[in-house]
Design a protein around this nucleic acid. Sequence first.
DNA 1: AATGAATGAGCTTTCATTCAT
DNA 2: CATGAATGAAAGCTCATTCAT
Lengths: 192, 192, 192, 192
Amino acid sequence: MAKKELIRETAISVMAELGYHESTTDRIAQEGGMAVGTIYNYFRNKEEILQYIFQVEFAKRKKAYEEELASEKPALEKLGSLLEKHFRAIEENILVGKILVREHPKPGGSEINEITKFLEGVPTLIQTLLNKAMENGEIRSCDTELMSAAFFGAVQGMALKAVFTDDENKQKQILQNAPKELMLLFKQGLGR
Amino acid sequence: MAKKELIRETAISVMAELGYHESTTDRIAQEGGMAVGTIYNYFRNKEEILQYIFQVEFAKRKKAYEEELASEKPALEKLGSLLEKHFRAIEENILVGKILVREHPKPGGSEINEITKFLEGVPTLIQTLLNKAMENGEIRSCDTELMSAAFFGAVQGMALKAVFTDDENKQKQILQNAPKELMLLFKQGLGR
Amino acid sequence: MAKKELIRETAISVMAELGYHESTTDRIAQEGGMAVGTIYNYFRNKEEILQYIFQVEFAKRKKAYEEELASEKPALEKLGSLLEKHFRAIEENILVGKILVREHPKPGGSEINEITKFLEGVPTLIQTLLNKAMENGEIRSCDTELMSAAFFGAVQGMALKAVFTDDENKQKQILQNAPKELMLLFKQGLGR
Amino acid sequence: MAKKELIRETAISVMAELGYHESTTDRIAQEGGMAVGTIYNYFRNKEEILQYIFQVEFAKRKKAYEEELASEKPALEKLGSLLEKHFRAIEENILVGKILVREHPKPGGSEINEITKFLEGVPTLIQTLLNKAMENGEIRSCDTELMSAAFFGAVQGMALKAVFTDDENKQKQILQNAPKELMLLFKQGLGR
DNA sequence: AATGAATGAGCTTTCATTCAT
DNA sequence: CATGAATGAAAGCTCATTCAT
């Protein structure tokens, strides 16, 4: 279904520029070279588009996570690999990075949606790895729930920094250094 | 001007519950026991209310920052104190915490507004302290710009975790542990 | 609340001309010399306007019914009086007659709304009077439930006829003869 | 052309349930197991489907009317026979009854369409029979135009009652009693 | 200063209809 | 003939903002 993909990509571009709330379905349709109605043949409403964007990104990370899990590396190295992939993905698509970093679900929503799945699911994956690392003695004993929240926050913070840096070179530099620096920080910071 | 303060508090309560976009000026007026028109005697528009909320919070942090700066402690300890104050402030007003952690300016805004002042200003304050700490040899050499972004992100991540934890005891616990754990992580992680 | 009344009257005029479904809120607002938004300060949605129209008319008939009930006349005469009033009301406002005669609730609606209240409530009032008349021996024994359905249908049929008669004189004539003819028909038809 | 018939039947089913305006062409196509486009090979637009439903029903009644006309019975008996057939037809297909009783043309339509043909044509047929009956002295002198409107209205009122009675037994009972009761009412009511 | 009815631009969404396959 | 993705006009409704009182 190339159309759904086209809508997703166009929406990413529009929402990255204007933010979810300022993005109109008309605008997305227009930039995608289609009629508004077409969007609604693939999505039930505007929010579902945003959900789908997160869904796709979460699926990618989930897949990478599972591949890493299956490998033989120490848990901390797995986390490092995932981080590398995450920042590389953002580097390849800054626009999607802007969205991941800025769009939040509307509050009060305890319903399971793709945005919360990302915003809560990713920290959970991190926590699992931290737990493993703790069990293996790779890191010192710590509150992994809190630590994974901090870790994910730090990732988001760095991504935010990168993504809104106008100078492309600097942006690239941040995105490339971020995973290393972050792993260094945590490896050392949680070292025994 | 007690009215402006009343509006600010009511808006915090409403926006924490519904989020900025779902919060209507009518609702804020109603919950504040006033007419919509009154709001517009104190704010030019809805966004300005949100800006004001951030402004007040930023001012508090700025003040604390300047007090700390004037003291004789090592930079890292100053940072720790600020962190303590930040989480204590959130503990005292969870609602405002929800807002600080979730509301972002609309993108593309390079205009200097109170939200970006908070979201960029606070990391800048952090960076200044990290720079000092680096100069003093309290921490190892590192990219403080990146590190402060990570630091602020981690703070936000932990606050997010706390603020949307329903169990009040756990919430309190997170808010109280967060600054310690975070300082420990960074002190060790950026140790020489 | 003169505004609500203005909206009701304008809506009657528009809906009588175009029918409920072809009537747009924009059009009603325009013909009422107000903004669309104003309508929504008095009604939650378009349908509620129609409901309100029926509500007002039903209330009038209900009131007349209760006045008649309190009187000393034989039941059949009461029915006759009500009929007179009904057709006189239509004569005084053909537009509202068009609506009463043509707009139906959307099906599946078992919810109690003002339209069904009219369409089912009025026959019920009629039935009550027929029951009284039967008890008093004014009319022969019959299935009053069925008979009231027929009676109300006949009323609606005659009103429909009148209301879509273009010739004003003929229209007036129908509206004036209808109650007499109908009462004659039923008095004789249900005579013993 | 079995397809057109299939569309008619499916549309009856959908429109009886949802009403004309809530019925979508997509839904009709889906329930008929065909594509939307197919509908438009047989009908120019959605309204034409409804028109066709009325057309078929009107044709049936017209045919029955002509058969009766050719017979030797007194006019009033002919009317009675038609009535029997009408209610029997509804009994055999409640769904179509719901439509006949509830869907009206959009107002202002002086164009000759199948719905007005039914809604005005049937009373006209009735009137012709009433005229005959009057000429033959079967009934007293009366305004047959008005009387036929009342008659048709009464029929519709009873059909409405039946068609929205959930209890199937009661429904059947109404449909079977209706023609008798109605003829009795009018025979006696218009008796000399 | 406070009020709150009025405003109307602007948004999301629907759905009858078309037409290339 | 059948299909069904694409269309886009048009509708209902919201809500930040204004301003006469």
